[in-house]
Simulated assay, not measured.
Amino acid sequence: MWKKFLLVGFSLIPMAAFTGQAAGAGAGTMVSADAMQWQEIEPGSPMKITILWGDRNKGEYAMLLKMPAGFVAPIHAHTGDYHGTNLIGTWRHSFEGGEERTLPPGSYVFQPGMEMHGDACAGPEDCILFVHQHVKGDVIPKR
């Protein structure tokens, strides 16, 4: 039994090393919440972002998105799909012509690319969302 356990364990070591390299392993990174560097998502916008990894202007990335309490974003779309998770506050998300939900912390949204939708921070506190896209980030306003 021990021989099988050791054989399987040792055979996984090269796989773990390869996977770590492929994922960009190296020196770890830790950033406390109070050290996050927030910037406007675009000049004059009340929404702020902090990039966690990747490059929003070039391709795959993840970010934290901060919406002030009471903020309602105009109906818009993005070229690519996104995955969003509410971390803080009360996020309201709607699909154009369809379902709208008020989402407490821990809630998840998959938003298909090129589909119009709305977002708002519906509660008394600011909202912070985790957003991940496999493509560069953009905003396409409703016409």
Rank of each mutant, 00 (worst) to 15 (best):
H93L: 03
G24E: 06
G89H: 00
P68I: 06
M47W: 09
P124R: 11
F10D: 10
A22Y: 15
G89T: 00
D126H: 01
Y108F: 14
I41N: 07
F71D: 04
Y82H: 13
P141K: 05
T50D: 03
G59N: 09
T50I: 08
K3W: 13
I13Y: 15
I75F: 09
M116D: 00
E99G: 05
K3T: 15
P112D: 02
M1Q: 13
G118W: 00
G24T: 12
I75Y: 07
W2T: 14
G123N: 01
A77Y: 00
K136P: 08
I51L: 12
W91K: 02
G70I: 04
R56Y: 12
D138E: 03
R56T: 09
F130L: 14
G54P: 02
L103G: 01
G98M: 05
S94D: 01
Y108L: 05
H93D: 04
F18C: 12
C121W: 01
F18V: 14
L65F: 08
I140T: 09
A69S: 07
V31T: 13
G44N: 10
Q39N: 08
A16W: 11
E125D: 12
F110P: 00
H132I: 08
K4E: 14
K4H: 14
P14E: 10
A122V: 05
A22G: 13
N86D: 06
S32T: 15
M63P: 03
D55I: 08
L64P: 01
Y61L: 08
L6P: 03
F10L: 15
I75K: 06
A27S: 15
P46S: 05
H132W: 11
E40T: 08
I75M: 12
G123E: 02
H134W: 09
G54M: 13
G26W: 05
M47F: 09
M36D: 06
F18H: 11
V8C: 15
I51N: 10
A23C: 08
A25M: 06
N57C: 06
Q111H: 00
L87R: 03
G59D: 07
T90L: 15
C127Q: 00
R101Q: 10
T102S: 13
S32E: 13
G123H: 02
N57T: 10
K142E: 05
G9R: 12
G113A: 03
Y61P: 05
Y61D: 03
I41Y: 04
M63L: 15
T79L: 13
F18E: 14
I13R: 15
K66D: 05
K58H: 12
